[in-house]
Structure formats: structure tokens, C-alpha cells
């Protein structure tokens, strides 16, 4: 873990150094890329909320529901995992208006990414719920604990600890996937750097900065995830 922290610090230093060394040049395109970074962060945070909500709802339904609710969950998971994110974004933005539902670019981007990743997250949530030992359910029956309390107070708290690593990986994938939102006319880091590259032709510098920004986002999420995992699984390890 330590070397990777060093790398992130090194990259930050490199970025700082680069900006000093070629300040005049950077001034041309850095502001636009940073404005794009703000859009990337916004879309990431909003779609992450949709992603987590859908993961838990569809995951619980997939694991425990029956009948129509189960089929709804299965249908949602299969459809949104089966299609390509770019197609989903296009469909939401260009075809949904045909059904009388016009979306803003941000809404289409957030919904498309959130629903797509929610389908993957649901499978992780389902697996984690299934990984909670059967004895836990039996104990709640023996203690006459209601099904709702069983899920929210006993099963989910344990399942969430199990699903953290998978969800952290998906969160990093989600941030990477926000690079596609230019398809719905949003100017995120990726699209900003393409635009700036076409204006200034500084491919190496521009894309080095862009790639490193994404890399830093990913490492940031990774640290947060590790800390979270540590916190949640402290009491679950066999021996402390």
C-alpha cells in the first residue's frame, strides 16, 4: 500500500512541477480540463448514489423476493448488464423523448450510468447476502425477529461488510465510465481534453494530465474503500 501512496504523491508533485515549468502553455488548456473535472466529479457522485440504491434494492429483491418482484429484479439486472452503457445513454437521451420523456444531459448521464452499474452491483449485493451464514437467519427465526428487521439489522450489516471490495471496484469502474457522458453533450474531463487537444495539439501533456487525474480519482477511492473495509470487518474477523 505504501508504494502506491508514494506514486500518488509523486504524480501530484509531477503535475505541480509541470504546471510551473510550462505555466504559459498550461494556462491555455488547464482551466478547461479542470472545469471538465468538476463535471466528472458531479456526474460520478450523483450516479454513484443511483448505483448504490439500485444495487441494494435489486440485490435484496434478487436474493429474497419471489414472484413479480423477483422477475422485475431479474429483468432489470439482465437488461442493464446485457446492453452497452453507450447504447443506454443514447437511448435515454435520444429515444426517450419519443416516449414523451425529455431528459437533461445530466439526468440522462446520471440515470444511464447509475442504472447500468446498479445492475452489476445488484449481483454483488446478492452474492454478499447469500454469503451471510444460514445460521444467522435461523437465529433470527428462533428469536422471533421480523423479516424486515432480519434483513435491515442482521443480514445487511454483515452483507455490506462482505460486498465492500466488490463495490469499491465497481465505483472505480463507474468513475471511468463517466468518460462516456460526452455522448449526451456533457463536457467532462475526457471531452474537454479532446477539445483542447484539437485547439492546441499538445497531445502528450493534455492526455498525461487527464490520465493522471483519473488515476488519482481511482487511488483515492481505493484508499477510502480500504479504510471502510477495515472499519466494517473489524468485528467480523474470526479472532481479534
Amino acid at each position: 500500500m505504501v508504494p502506491r501512496i508514494a506514486i500518488v504523491i509523486g504524480l501530484a508533485a509531477f503535475l505541480a512541477g509541470l504546471s510551473v515549468a510550462t505555466f504559459a502553455e498550461l494556462k491555455m488548456f488547464l482551466p478547461a480540463i479542470l472545469r471538465g473535472a468538476v463535471v466528472t466529479v458531479q456526474i460520478s457522485v450523483l450516479s454513484w448514489l443511483v448505483f448504490m440504491a439500485m444495487s441494494l434494492i435489486a440485490g435484496v429483491a434478487r436474493a429474497k423476493a419471489s414472484g413479480a418482484v423477483l422477475w422485475l429484479a431479474v429483468g432489470y439486472i439482465e437488461v442493464f448488464r446485457g446492453t452497452s452503457l453507450l447504447v443506454i445513454l443514447f437511448w435515454l437521451f435520444f429515444v426517450m423523448p419519443e416516449f414523451g420523456l425529455t431528459m437533461s444531459p445530466v439526468l440522462a448521464g446520471v440515470l444511464g450510468i447509475g442504472l447500468n452499474f446498479g445492475a452489476y452491483g445488484a449481483e454483488i449485493a446478492r452474492g454478499a447476502i447469500g454469503a451471510v451464514p444460514r445460521g444467522q437467519t435461523e437465529a433470527t427465526i428462533a428469536l422471533n425477529i421480523s423479516p424486515w428487521n432480519r434483513m435491515t439489522r442482521i443480514i445487511l450489516p454483515q452483507a455490506i461488510a462482505i460486498m465492500i471490495p466488490g463495490m469499491v471496484n465497481l465505483t472505480i469502474e463507474l468513475i471511468k465510465a463517466t468518460a462516456l457522458v460526452s455522448a449526451v453533450t456533457l463536457v467532462d474531463i475526457t471531452y474537454a481534453s479532446v477539445q483542447q487537444n484539437q485547439l492546441h495539439f499538445r497531445t502528450v501533456e493534455i492526455f498525461a494530465i487527464t490520465l493522471m487525474l483519473y488515476y488519482c480519482f481511482a487511488q483515492f477511492v481505493r484508499f477510502g474503500g480500504d479504510a471502510l473495509e477495515e472499519r466494517f470487518s473489524r468485528h467480523l474477523s474470526k479472532r481479534v
Binding site: 471511468k176 465510465a177 468518460a179 462516456l180 481534453s193 487537444n197 497531445t203 487527464t210 490520465l211 487511488q219
Partner: peptide
Amino acid sequence: ATPLLVQIFFLFF
């Protein structure tokens, strides 16, 4: 850790 789309653009340019 970095998006495929950015890598595609990078190679492309």
C-alpha cells in the same frame, strides 16, 4: 485505473 475511452483517444491522437 484509467478509462478505456481516454486511452483510445490518446492512442488515436
